[in-house]
Each structure stands twice: as C-alpha cells, then as structure tokens.
C-alpha cells in the first residue's frame, strides 16, 4: 500500500543544506498499525509530512495505492490528502466556532458530496466515536478527549487509505489518551491502516509495529508481539 524507496529530503536554509531524511526505505501494508518513534529532530515529522502529502521529497519515490506521489502538483496532492489520508493532530486542529458536525463534514465538502450524504456520514462517524450526543457543540464546548474524537471522525469520514496521527495523545490526560488509543485500535480491527507518530514508548507499545527514526534514518523496524519486540530484519 505504501512503498517508499530511497526517500531523501533536504532543506535549504540560505547556503546551509540540512538533510532531514536520508535514503529512507519502508513498506507498509494495508491494515497495519504502525507506530513511528524517534527523538525530536530525528526526521519523523518530515517523514509524516511526506507520507501525508503535505510535502514532497527531494529525491526518491513514494507510492501510495499504486500512485507515485513524489512528482504530483499541489492540486493533485490536495486531492490525495482529501481522498486517501485522514489526519489526526496533537492540537486537534478543529475549526473554531464551528460545530462538531460541520467540522466532520468539511472533508466531504472538498470531496464534493451532497449535503444530505455529508450529514448522514458525519452523524455516523460522530456516533461511531461516541459523540452522537455532541454533534452541535462547538470545539470550545468539548473536552480534549472529545475534541480528538471529533478529529478522528473527521479523519475517517472520507474512508481514507491511511489515517495519520501525529502525537494524538500528546495533549490529553492518560484517561482520554487511553480512550483515543482504544478508538484507534477499534478502527484498526476494522481494517483501517493507521500510522501513529509518538515519542511516548507506552503509546508506541500499543501499536503492532514500531519504526524508529534517528538522524534522518530508520534505525529500527520491529513488530510488537505482546510485550516483546522482535526485529524483522
């Protein structure tokens, strides 16, 4: 599903070139639940941005659902983000002064769905994350955990190929964090591919495969089997 070969990303800051990713190779299959770990500056954020089609690699290939992403135009990337990727952010990134329902409908507006279809699917998604009774609340009337659940509903409402979660529990207390992780697990059990970036080991433990970045390279890629971690290469 995701095929990444020799992916390199270099930022030019004036005359200094900083290499954020160096020749990264990674394959992710449909239905996986991958945790991406690494200290800050390890390149995991850059990697997420590229997987999320928010950014393009300097060199290398990225194939998502048989489509080469690396050379796409801005508009094509926007469409891929809309159709194939669902984002969940650490700081929720919901539109302020906009009801949960409208927030969840947003990706479907850009997908050009009818308002009837949008409403139906948004209500289903909110119901699925357990917020069926909060649909008309604005984000400032919701708790952190509830906000993140709205964000998850928004991420999955267009039936994306992957859900990309960037530190989704980072702003939550343990209880809400566990709830959110529970939702991810439930989603994954239904066959949704999830890629989750975190620096917390115990969150990464709850995924099925952990990829660790350091200095722009993958230094470890291991399956989670129970409490143990076994290297696959």
């Amino acid at each position: 599903m995701i095929e990444i070969k020799n992916l390199t990303k270099t930022y030019k800051n004036g005359s200094i070139a900083v290499t954020a990713l160096r020749e990264v190779n990674l394959n992710i299959e449909e239905g996986e639940f991958v945790g991406i770990m690494g200290p800050s500056g390890s390149g995991k954020s850059t990697f997420m941005n590229i997987i999320g089609c928010l950014d393009r690699p300097t060199s290398g290939t990225y194939i998502l659902d048989d489509k080469a992403i690396a050379k796409m135009s801005d508009n094509e990337l926007a469409e891929v983000r809309n159709q194939k990727i669902g984002f969940v952010f650490q700081s929720f990134n919901l539109l302020p002064r906009t009801s949960a329902l409208k927030n969840v409908e947003l990706p479907m507006i850009y997908a050009k769905l009818s308002s009837k279809e949008r409403r139906k699917r948004a209500l289903e998604a909110l119901d699925w994350v357990g917020l069926g009774d909060r649909v008309h609340h604005n984000p400032n009337e919701l708790s952190g955990g509830q906000k993140q659940r709205v964000a998850i509903a928004r991420a999955l409402v267009n039936n994306p190929s992957i859900i990309l979660a960037d530190e989704p529990t980072g702003n939550l207390d343990t209880k809400s964090g566990n709830e959110v992780m529970g939702i991810f697990k439930k989603l994954n059990n239904e066959g949704v591919t999830i890629i989750l970036v975190t620096h917390e080991a115990d969150i990464a433990q709850q995924t099925k495969r952990v990829v660790t970045f350091k200095d722009g390279e993958i230094i470890k890629d291991a399956l989670n089997i129970g409490e143990e971690m076994n290297s696959i290469d």
């Binding site: 999320g52 928010l54 801005d74 508009n75 926007a78 469409e79 983000r81 809309n82 159709q83 984002f87 990134n93 919901l94 539109l95 302020p96 947003l106 990706p107 850009y110 997908a111 928004r154 267009n158």
Partner: peptide, 16 residues
C-alpha cells in the same frame, strides 16, 4: 493562518 492550514490538510486546493 491555522484555519487555512487545516483546510488545506483536509483537501482544499489553492483555488478553493
């Protein structure tokens, strides 16, 4: 700015 970022991440293109 942030709202624009959210909309773009969710799939709004430049023209939109």
């Amino acid at each position: 700015t942030r709202e624009i970022g959210i909309r773009k991440a969710i799939g709004a293109n430049r023209a939109t």
